[in-house]
Nucleic acid binder design. Sequence first.
DNA 1: CACAATTTTGTGTGCGCACACAAAAAGCGA
DNA 2: TCGCTTTTTGTGTGCGCACACAAAATTGTG
Lengths: 360, 360
Amino acid sequence: MITIKDIAKAANVSEGTVDRVIHNRIGVSKKTEAKVKKVLERHNFKVNPVASALALKKKHQISVLIPEHDDSDLFWKSPYLGVLKAAEDVKNFGVQVSSFKFNQSDPISYLKAFKALLETKPTAVIMVPNFSNETKQIINRLEALNIPYLFLNIDIEGFNNMGYVGQDSCTAGYIAGKLLHFNNLQPCEFLIIQSSHDITKNNAISNRVKGFKDYFFKNEINSTPKTLKIEDINNVLETKEIINLYLQTHPEIKGVFVPSSRIYKVVDCIDNNRLQDLKLIGFDNTPQNTECLLNDSVSFLISQKPFDQGYKSVRLLTDYLMQNKMPKHKIYLPIDILIKENVKYNGRDEFISDKNNTVK
Amino acid sequence: MITIKDIAKAANVSEGTVDRVIHNRIGVSKKTEAKVKKVLERHNFKVNPVASALALKKKHQISVLIPEHDDSDLFWKSPYLGVLKAAEDVKNFGVQVSSFKFNQSDPISYLKAFKALLETKPTAVIMVPNFSNETKQIINRLEALNIPYLFLNIDIEGFNNMGYVGQDSCTAGYIAGKLLHFNNLQPCEFLIIQSSHDITKNNAISNRVKGFKDYFFKNEINSTPKTLKIEDINNVLETKEIINLYLQTHPEIKGVFVPSSRIYKVVDCIDNNRLQDLKLIGFDNTPQNTECLLNDSVSFLISQKPFDQGYKSVRLLTDYLMQNKMPKHKIYLPIDILIKENVKYNGRDEFISDKNNTVK
DNA sequence: CACAATTTTGTGTGCGCACACAAAAAGCGA
DNA sequence: TCGCTTTTTGTGTGCGCACACAAAATTGTG
């Protein structure tokens, strides 16, 4: 382990000077700077992040703007837990993480949460850009304050976000098409069920649909997926009627694709006897969806690794704030294919082993 | 952030005493110990692992015994890279990691590598228990020296290993069966191709075969997989002849299961026209296998996340050595289902973002 | 050339903890 | 009670680094 002291000795300067060179501080003559840099290079010196974190009194603040979760939509619990876990991991490196939650269907609460977030004077922000107009406002503010921001889960274009952590939704949809169609030699039809609620605001969902349709188009499969739009998927009675009527009048439908995380609601609405000859594929291993895999009502779930999204985005920003470089602009997390048998090994809420530094 | 100093002040003792209580050292009277413990509890004190690591001069040594890799078997490269990456991450926490490689088909080199490993005076050992007799010898030695050991990738019973990091091979095989059979309504037959070389020594492979057969048995599918054993899979001419003869005389075969990471060799041996109507499934996204996915000769690969296996085992042991508790005995990593479209997002050699603390 | 202003370089302190060592208190036999 | 050992408690130092401050070297000006 080579230290600053060693470098100082080798370069015949003081430790302070080495420190200045390492951090590109002012007040070093060109000559000595070159000299020290050469020694640094030669010894392949890297600062000890542990010692650095300990000495660094200046704290960084990462603030996270994320949708809240409730029992009917547990999806957002996972990224939140990932953020929490990462927060614990980076706490001792002088990084403070705070989360602010908003109601996914209420732009006002989005702005409100952002306002509260600003109070924390963040060094950097992680956000789920949920509403497009309000996002513009928020980003204007962030850019005026010169605060870097990272998009989580939802990728929208046209901003100077420092990156995106999430899934390649289009490919994920394509994969859904492929899996549903796999081994089907005879002609057959597939149905996309989506709620109009989702269509308007979440372009991840429309990208999934696009990818799904792409599969059938690109592979010249003699079948174009049909789409069934549900006004209010929470209205069970109405939804039941619409779906079952459609499925009755279209017996050629062999499989159903639900591009949101609400496939369990669709399952609840489909008549049992029809359900048995259908293959279903949806997104996200929420507890309710996982249950559907286990009782064989759903064949596949595609996971976007929401926990990892939260975890990774915090870790990424931490690395950035600690003067390391930002790896790439888009961090696409794996497209996990989940079935009944492997879902238990793809835990939602765990990443790496628990580091419980508890007092014995 | 609450420090030892704070605790000392609150309990009205010196920092040294608090330190003694935290680490269960001798020389503290019952009375003060209780007092300090209460304060510790009350403030929910946790040691700052960063400061702790910096102060701790005593270094831990984790030594890893792992098969070597070459161009024809790149599988073991990934766990090794995972180990290297983890080594980098834990280096500054006072943990030194060294790897020792052996030839997978040479028990002597296994023992030889172990001998070299012992020279490092390891605090703990991570090993791939490849040969059963020699493993017994090795473990006798480790237990005599009171060195804890963790199994990586290969799980064998009957030892006091502190844990296992790897895949649930049986379930992985079961999944392979399910995927290959998915959507096949008409009766059809499947073939398992394995090299006798693998059978003898690697029980992961026999577990996969067991799981694969289980699928057909448990689901009362009117088809029992046939098995074709290859003496020497590296003898291309002979292998070609055996495989193609079998496939010609058994046109009912619709799919092939290769329970090892050598599916690319099988692909090379199958006649092109026959290959096109076959579905193939194998293990591990080595570069050669990934290529087979991309050119559509293989439908599925099951990944055992070899990089993560290496990474996680080192991190796990590090946590243990740093006085944290060991989470569970068996750490089953996810059973990743890979297809052409998602393989690029399941990189073999990456885990979490690079922490390149390079000097700018 | 003297002297101040400025640039460049060196030194000291503390982050929170672990551990060696010093000091104080308690126990104990005579 | 004294003098001693043993137990208990307190203090000081360093891990590698960041940063404030002090010192030295250089430059510029009259």
